[in-house]
Simulated assay, not measured.
Amino acid sequence: MEDFVELRKVTKERKMRLIMDFIPNHTGKQSQWFSKSQKKEGKYTDYYIWTTCDPQTYRHDLVIHMVIGRGAWTYDDTRKECYFHQLESDKPDLNLRSADVRQELESILRFWLDKGVDGFHVQDFQHLYEDEVLGNGTLVNRKTDSEHKDLNRIRTSDNLNYPKLLKAWKTVLESYNTKPGREKALIVTAKDDLNTTMEYFDAGVTIVRVTPLSDSGASFAERIETKLKDANSKRIGWMYGDKYSSRLTNSLVGPVQIKALLTLQATLPGAPFNYYGNEIGMTDHPTLSAPNKYRTPMQ
């Protein structure tokens, strides 16, 4: 915390804004919340997504970890049930359908706002709510590649709860606005479609960050064009990659194409977001496996 206080002091002196990543999707498995949920202690019983399951099928050594937006189940020896996680098994998903969880998250926002941060960025916001059937015993077997695709159908996207959640967080941030030009920012990374982007703007989001290089059917040029037609195009954040994806140098052919994309990003309406190193043509580590190969120190 001393390091953070010093960082906030220096950024204020240099008239810089400090935006923090806010990760409401999961906690670590060592969290006190998870420990209490394992033991079904009071309100913490439903802080995570649990269901009855066959311990032989969902033992930890059989779980195949999915990319974010899918997920898997892992059997817990303490609670004798399975918990849901979109990432590795040591990152259990929070149950945002719980009012207690939502209140805890708002308390976390207020804690950091009291420390002087200027706003938050929420990644993969569309994955925060799981389908309600998850808690009713619907399990998906993950043992073969052919079954991996079935995991997508247990997710809900653009749930009606999302705008409500964003508006609640926006209300918290607005209570800390001190004067015009000092508003607290709420930035989200959204699925690459116009309807989702518009819903987030309507809910009061400051900037919607998009990744136009992602595979989503339309061509790169078409995705850029669609975003530019949005009346809120000046509030788009353009992002070519992050800690989950290969760097531009490894995913594109040659420095000319990279320079063209970076020039486009810098001149479009809106805000450019660069995952460190992309702006200098940094490469993935040649021998490390994903995702570590994307996360090496600045070259």
Rank of each mutant, 00 (worst) to 15 (best):
F273W: 11
D21P: 01
S31A: 07
R247N: 08
P269R: 05
Y75I: 04
T144V: 09
T287M: 07
Y244K: 06
K179Q: 12
V10C: 07
D90T: 07
G181P: 03
M282D: 09
G28M: 04
E106C: 15
R142L: 06
N25T: 02
C82E: 00
K80E: 12
T171H: 09
D230E: 03
S245E: 13
T171A: 14
S251N: 07
T144E: 10
A221D: 15
I236H: 04
H65M: 08
A221Y: 09
I154V: 11
R247T: 08
R247V: 06
T267H: 13
E130Y: 04
G116E: 02
D54I: 04
V188Y: 02
Q38N: 09
Y58I: 05
D145S: 09
T196I: 01
T197P: 00
G69P: 03
I108Q: 13
L288Y: 08
H60P: 11
D3E: 14
K143N: 14
S31N: 02
D77N: 14
N292M: 12
S251Y: 05
G204I: 04
P291N: 09
V253H: 04
F22L: 13
S146W: 03
D118K: 09
H85N: 08
K9Y: 10
G181R: 05
L165G: 03
D114C: 03
V205E: 09
L173M: 08
T283I: 09
L194R: 10
Y240I: 06
L109S: 06
D61L: 04
D145R: 10
T287C: 01
R142V: 05
I23L: 12
K167H: 06
P272L: 01
E6I: 13
K184I: 11
Y276T: 09
M66Q: 15
E41P: 04
T178A: 09
T156K: 11
T263L: 08
F125N: 08
E6Y: 11
M16R: 13
D158C: 13
R14A: 14
D118C: 06
T226W: 01
S107C: 07
V122L: 12
A221E: 15
R223P: 02
T178P: 00
A221L: 09
I23C: 13
R209L: 10
S31H: 02
M282L: 14
K170N: 11
E147F: 07
L268N: 04
R223L: 07
G42I: 00
T196G: 10
T249E: 05
V210H: 13
I19R: 10
Y129D: 03
Y275L: 07
P272D: 01
K143W: 07
T189V: 14
I64K: 11
M1G: 11
M198D: 14
D242C: 12
